[in-house]
Amino acid sequence: MSSTKYILGIFDDPDDLMHGIDKLQKNSVPIYDVYSPCPIHGIDAKLGIKDSRLGYAAFMFGCLGGTIMFSMVYYMLVHDWPINIGGKNFFAIPDFVPVTFEWTVLWTAFGMTFTFFFATHLFPGRAPRVMDLRATNDKFIIAIDARGNTPNADIDSILKEAGAVEVKHNDRKYVSYE
């Protein structure tokens, strides 16, 4: 049995990469992942990737931050230490708006940063996980699980027909920068 875990099709051009995805899908070859040094329009729909739920998380962090700050300001200025300034009401909502807005934005930003790091496993100090280091510079890569039902020679020929400049058999999941 072969020790190959992944077959990598390496492309120079994003259009060739999209053509390679079409050919692989037409031949019912499951694609593990696609690596690109830049965003490619339409690749998410072609690969069947669902929209991100990070927007919902941002909304929840904003609501949490706004609620906490509004509650803190209300408690401090109305119950704990009410100060009569020019005869105004202690519970003057327009006075609470600026600081509540700023804390809403702050909590959203910090919450999204931590959520992004958690979701992508890109914690500070951790080495990035990539199949081939050239994917971070100038190459476009399709990774295919070699343990599928399609023979490896057929996958190699499909990738070469699609315009791959190199087909590489990888025996481990990720390469590190070290």
Rank of each mutant, 00 (worst) to 15 (best):
D13T: 14
D15G: 11
F117S: 07
V175M: 12
T104Y: 11
A127C: 08
P98Q: 08
D145Y: 03
L122G: 07
I93T: 10
G125D: 03
P30S: 05
W81Y: 15
I141G: 00
T136L: 14
R134D: 01
D16S: 10
I21V: 15
T120F: 14
H19N: 12
I141S: 00
L47K: 08
L159I: 10
P14G: 04
I93K: 04
L54S: 08
K26F: 07
A135C: 05
T108M: 13
K173N: 01
F140H: 00
A45P: 00
T100M: 12
P39S: 13
H79M: 12
F90T: 09
D33Y: 06
F110P: 00
F61Q: 05
P39H: 15
W107P: 00
A92K: 04
K139F: 02
K5M: 12
N170P: 00
M76R: 04
G55F: 08
T104L: 12
Y75K: 05
F11K: 07
S176E: 12
V78F: 02
A164T: 05
M131Q: 06
G148F: 07
V105Y: 04
I142C: 02
L54F: 11
K26L: 08
G111M: 04
V165H: 08
G66V: 04
M18D: 00
A135W: 02
C38K: 15
V34T: 06
E178H: 08
L106I: 09
W103R: 02
P124S: 07
P124W: 11
F118R: 15
G86N: 01
D12L: 15
S2D: 12
M112W: 10
L133I: 08
A92V: 07
V165C: 11
D44F: 07
N149M: 14
D16Y: 08
A45H: 06
I144L: 01
